[in-house]
Simulated scan of single mutants.
Amino acid sequence: MTPRTVDHCDPPPPGWTYLDREQIDEAWSRFRAAFGALRPGLHADAWPAITEPAPSVTFDPRFDATAVPAIWAARMEAINAETVRCLLGIADPSEVVVLDWQHPGYRLDLSEHASAPDAVWRVPVHPDGDYYTFVLPDFSEGTFGHPWEQSLCVFGPRLVGTLAVTLSTWLPVLRVDGRTQQDNPLLVDDPPPVRRPARRFFEGFTEAGPHFAHRMRQRGDAGCSDASGA
């Protein structure tokens, strides 16, 4: 399972640096400018918790951890690792801002974190208990995890063209550009529920236009270019 540390004002793990109060205030101001005010909520009438931008793809990473704990742990590690891999392809320098609602914020040096012999996450990308944001300093590309909806929004043209493509090969898609199947032309399909395997989701594009993964790649720029999603 992904190693975690709990914040009790102890030194953060390699690659993680606390944001000071001024930096935290600035980061949350940028967050609100990009996504609106955070709308925390336990129930579906409060979801999504942000105004999901375009382009973006929101995934359902849920899995019953009590059924096969090893699979749940592997899925969590895969999401965390793939996000770092793709962010490293676009972050220059290799730093992102990490926000954890009502908790300290961090600046994460992705290179130092990924190179650490025993990499430890202060907070993960996978939403396992709070609202987590991993984002470039200009808030143009990143991820937002919702702990109660159990969703992960991937946003920004380059991440949509890379990270969203690889995740969509095995995670169900909830929304594209903040819109669900019912009101999004990218989600034209026969009647199956919104939370569905990505492969069936892709097959729905055979009549509506090019393959979904190809369309997602087309919307993104180069970067993390080996993420073919095929």
Rank of each mutant, 00 (worst) to 15 (best):
P13Q: 07
T17P: 00
L19M: 14
R21M: 07
E22C: 00
Q23G: 14
A27N: 09
R30P: 00
A37L: 04
L38N: 13
L42N: 08
D45C: 02
A49N: 09
T51Y: 00
E52N: 04
E52F: 00
A54K: 04
S56N: 09
V57M: 06
T58R: 03
F59A: 07
P61A: 01
A65S: 13
W72H: 13
A73I: 00
I79R: 02
A81M: 11
L87C: 13
A91G: 10
P93W: 10
P93K: 09
E95S: 06
L99M: 13
R107I: 11
R107W: 02
L108V: 14
L110S: 12
S111K: 14
S115L: 06
A119R: 07
V125H: 05
P127Y: 04
G129Y: 01
G129F: 01
Y132G: 00
T133W: 02
D138S: 12
F139D: 05
S140T: 14
F144L: 12
H146C: 05
P147L: 10
Q150L: 07
C153S: 13
F155Q: 04
V160F: 08
A164K: 05
V173E: 03
V173W: 08
R179G: 10
N184W: 03
P185A: 14
V188I: 06
D190G: 02
P191I: 00
R196Q: 12
G209P: 10
H211R: 06
A213K: 10
H214V: 14
R215W: 09
M216E: 01
M216G: 12
A222N: 09
A227M: 08
